[in-house]
Design a binder for these strands. Structure first.
Lengths: 401, 401
DNA sequence: GATACTAAATTTAGATTCTAAATAAAAGTC
DNA sequence: GACTTTTATTTAGAATCTAAATTTAGTATC
């Protein structure tokens, strides 16, 4: 016997309240008449729902109603808008060397942010959790918001996370971290913490605020040190059975690729190789004795017309085209966004990559460089947390300041 | 302003009726009390919904109510069950050389079937459509059902089909076929026809009646002449932006693979190569002068211990392991089902393939051979059509015999 | 400044729907 | 035949939405 969802009269109000709230959330300030048109409900119902939402603290009524819109005759309309300060969400990016916490209001506007380094790459989960917790408080402080206002927290990390938001026990370190972090933040502040893979959050971020506005089928390629993808199909994140979707270890087996090394790693490697040879290049001055040559150096030199650097860019674009084409063929996204630390530099690669892509696949997607830079995971985490709040608005109790 | 779904009291009945129907659909015969427990509704509501569904023709009431279940005291319970003959669906597999039509009742039981060859590989869309339409009538005749009873029709074909069920205009032949078929079957019989990619239908079929019972993340690999995949993630089919998801042309670029050729094609090729050489093998007797050696010959010879055939199987299993591993890494399915014409023979490959798979991926999925044989697309098409009927039950008007 | 006009808010009556409790019915048990 | 058990039916009640009539709060016009 399957579990089924039946409906009672009481649930109607919930459905309608949620719908009206969704409209208000996506508008600046709306009149009851506008809400009626959007919802198909009558005036009586619409107003009653708005009163409800106001009593619960999600929306507020505007005064000076004529100030908005064009002049109009008749009795002034009541106007409602989202109370974006009714609560906030936290998006936390846990990297290897540092953590960044973004505080956003209910409209998703960033209202605070803090970043703190970890003491080293190999520190214990416990210490990591302590730093994260403190950074979160710093960010809240910067936003001028008390911890009680936090309605949802999403943490992004470079590990596979299942659809249920849990990390597999087969990952001992991250599993420990998972349990510890959830417990710590709940015990300290009463926050409900959700985990998600960083590439997946990057994909959410791009769909929301990045190059993927309105796109339903997209892949975000984190292309810096190591290729990894966040996959969105029909507007939904793909996780796979154990959260492993978007892994790209198969690149080992792809001709002309051979490793999951990312663009920055390859640019460094090939520049170092070139410098070991005799070739004449401006990269020599960048890489002074004792200083490593970086991907930035290569892109900068290429922009100046350096032949060796341009050669490296050509190789990079071929590599990228091959990587993108595997995704493009198997998943047929509309758009592939290049993200990660190299996103800015990658724009120089877009045109040649797109040209080569046409040779590798019959269904080439659009290509774009992420405009979000290294904030991409934090922004995606905010989006993820907001999704949770929006889905559960009517069950959350807002604590007034 | 987003389109939103609000609810009225009238819609409650719809929701509850749909839920109750879903329970009845998945049970043999249920009492009102059982429905009450499953739905959480009261007796009055449950009975009223059942009367409704009965009036609409979807369910029927049983007599001899004590015949079911164990002996029980008290007033006999009313018992309802799905009227599986209230309508039927058609699942149509359009191949290159023939078409097969499956007629199924509302429980999904096959009640009729017919298969007819096309006159050639290269015939016009119009002629194809005529043959399909006639085969459908033959199948209905075999089922003893009139065309009026058909509630939904799904057609599976080897072309990319978008989420919306349409074929891209960039595919001139199939696009013409799409429009023509829908128009023809609608004009002739009033049927609403849905199109879907054959590998996708195979995936639906496996989830329903095949090796993937209950699995939420799975890939079906049609592995006969050419590799192609149907992908299911979190219980949903993946289509991609233009219906191209599951394409495997990237295999060209995978080391140790190099082409999208399927297992049957490779077995033939390698056997032919071996026969051109000097090696001693029982395959020579199978391939008498003028007769081509087939994949079946190779598998049969291997089963008898033929060294050359066993060598081919070993190569095939490596090839298969590489193909599967690319899917397994990027999408992390729980299960990969080998389907298509070679499904039966493929079971001999499962064990060695699984062994090799562990070397290629850290997240090896379970492997299985499809138990559905070449009926897989037709069965998937039936499931697809049933999905449509179940989602729209309350809008469909059943025509009584 | 009085009157008319307009658009929105509010009130009121009405229709559905579900629930809950009381009553009736159809069996079996003793 | 009286009692028990289980289900069906009836009745009253609560919540929701809609629709139509009425009131309100402004602007426009004379």
């Amino acid at each position: 016997m399957p579990e089924i969802a039946t409906a009672t009269p009481q649930m109607l109000r919930r459905v309608n309240a949620a719908s009206v709230l969704a409209v208000i959330r996506s508008s600046d300030a709306v009149t009851v008449s506008e809400l009626m048109e959007a919802s198909g409900l009558t005036r009586a119902t619409t107003i009653s729902v708005c009163e409800d939402l106001m009593a619960r603290g999600w929306i507020r009524e505007l005064e000076n109603q004529r100030d908005f819109g064009t002049y109009q005759m008749g009795r002034p309309a009541r106007r409602f808008e989202l109370d974006e300060s009714a609560g906030c969400v936290l998006g936390i990016d846990v990297g290897v060397l540092k953590t960044t916490v973004v505080v956003a209001d209910l409209r998703g506007s960033t209202i605070g942010r803090a970043s703190e380094p970890f003491r080293g790459r190999e520190i214990e989960a416990e210490e990591r959790i302590r730093v994260i917790s403190q950074t979160a408080l710093l960010a809240l402080d910067a936003a001028g918001v008390v911890p009680d206002k936090v309605l949802a927290v999403t943490v992004g990390l470079a590990a596979p996370v299942g659809r249920d938001g849990n990390i597999l026990v087969s990952q001992p370190f991250w599993s420990l971290f998972d349990v510890g972090l959830k417990k710590a933040l709940h015990d300290l502040h009463g926050w409900a913490v959700m985990l998600e893979n960083d590439a997946n959050l990057a994909a959410l971020g791009e769909c929301w605020r990045g190059a993927g506005g309105g796109v339903q089928d997209l892949a975000v390629l984190l292309a810096g040190e190591r290729f990894g993808a966040g996959l969105v199909e029909s507007g939904r994140l793909l996780h796979g059975a154990a959260g492993g979707a978007g892994e790209m270890a198969y690149l080992d087996m792809v001709e002309g690729v051979g490793s999951p090394d990312g663009l920055a790693a390859l640019a460094r490697l090939w520049a170092t190789e070139a410098l070991a040879g005799e070739s004449k290049t401006t990269l020599r001055t960048a890489a002074a004795p004792g200083r490593e040559v970086t991907a930035q150096h290569v892109f900068a030199a290429a922009a100046q017309g350096d032949k060796v650097a341009l050669g490296i860019l050509d190789r990079l674009s071929d590599r990228l085209a091959r990587v993108v084409s595997t995704l493009a063929i198997l998943l047929n996204p509309e758009l592939v966004v290049i993200g990660g630390a190299v996103a800015d530099s990658a724009s120089a690669l877009l045109e040649p990559t797109a040209r080569k892509l046409a040779a590798y696949t019959a269904t080439p997607p659009r290509l774009a460089a992420s405009p979000l830079g290294d904030a991409i995971v934090g922004i995606g985490a905010v989006r993820h947390a907001l999704d949770h709040v929006e889905k559960n608005s009517l069950d959350l109790v807002l604590r007034r300041a």
